[in-house]
Computed example of a mutant assay.
Amino acid sequence: MKKKEVPKVADKIELVKKYIKKGLKLARACRLLQIARSSCYPKKKVKHCKNKPTAKVGRPIPGYSYSINNCIIDDSVIETILHETCEEYPFYGYKKITKILRKKHGLRINAKKVYRLVKKLGLLLPYVKHLKQGHLAVARKVTSMNQLWQIDIKYVKAMNGQFIMLTDIIDVYTRKLVGREITKTATTNDALTAVERALKENNVTKNLILRSDNGPQFTSVKFEHFCKINNIYHELIPTNSPNYNAHIESFHALLEKECIAWNEIKNFTHGYIIIDDYIKFYNEERIHGSLSYMSPNEFIRKSMI
């Protein structure tokens, strides 16, 4: 037996045109013949100009900038200024050079243009990758309080769109929340304030291990310097390994489940009060199965007897 010849796409398109003339809709005709509707539309021919190169996307480079007095400053003049500035400040990157051009020379220029010009002139400093501070976290057997603390940041969004940033510190042995900072930001300074307050309130001066994730607040030079001068051994968990920070992650899960989910937080002030009350309840009253069904503060009092 001879095999049936499968009609080509061009033949199917001709059939579609005949069906359309008879009153059948294009979509219906294409579905019957099992071809895409796009194949029935005329294709635009792309014209290629041999002499003219392909234009890049984006606006053309103007070749000048403005001063604060709205005077036009040609790029050749700016390049001369850049040579002089980079000779005077050879250790500055293009962002700081931009600030100098604005302050000293009164130029209205952005960092992207400065980057382009210094790269063109060969004055761009090599990129130096920021190395993470701290030590890599390892499995530890915790036998006493104030031996290992874990720190992390949680974001809570209020109904009015405001964000509430929680920087919390938990003691792994007692499960007590030993430090917290509730702010509208989540900076290194906020993290340092939380740690500093926790050290004072718990009278900790030595032999403390502080574990964190790889957030920019904790990998900064400023945070590591603070840990060194306060005799804190700061260690970082491996990337994508939140189980190394399980206790503070567990606290934030409880906070979400038992506090935030039960309250409609209207704004930052409302959220501050509710979260602060929950933290007091957590430390004083909330029982833990791992603490023989005692609250963190009750467990501390019993262990001190």
Rank of each mutant, 00 (worst) to 15 (best):
K206F: 07
T167H: 07
I248L: 01
T185F: 15
N231W: 02
D171Y: 05
N189R: 12
Y282C: 00
E258I: 09
E256H: 10
K176D: 10
I170V: 14
K280V: 15
N202P: 10
C227I: 09
K266D: 05
H234M: 04
N203G: 01
E284G: 04
C227M: 08
S220M: 09
I275S: 07
I275K: 10
E256K: 15
F251T: 00
T239K: 13
G271D: 06
I237D: 03
E181H: 13
G271I: 04
N189Q: 15
S250W: 08
N283Y: 12
I164E: 05
L210C: 02
T185Y: 14
R211N: 04
A191Q: 03
C259R: 01
F226P: 06
I274C: 08
I237A: 15
N203V: 12
N263G: 01
N243I: 14
D171H: 05
I274V: 15
K280C: 06
A191K: 14
T269W: 04
F251Q: 09
E264V: 00
D171A: 02
F223C: 00
L192T: 07
L236N: 11
E284W: 06
F226T: 00
E235W: 07
P238T: 12
K184D: 12
F281E: 10
I237H: 01
P238R: 14
Q217I: 02
I209P: 01
P216K: 07
V204C: 01
E258Y: 05
G179Q: 03
V195N: 04
L210D: 14
T167G: 04
N240Q: 09
W262V: 05
E284L: 09
I182N: 06
P242W: 13
K206T: 13
H234L: 09
I273L: 11
F223L: 02
F226C: 08
T193G: 00
T167P: 00
A253H: 13
D168Y: 01
E181W: 08
L192G: 11
N202T: 08
L177T: 07
D276E: 11
I274N: 02
D171M: 11
T188F: 15
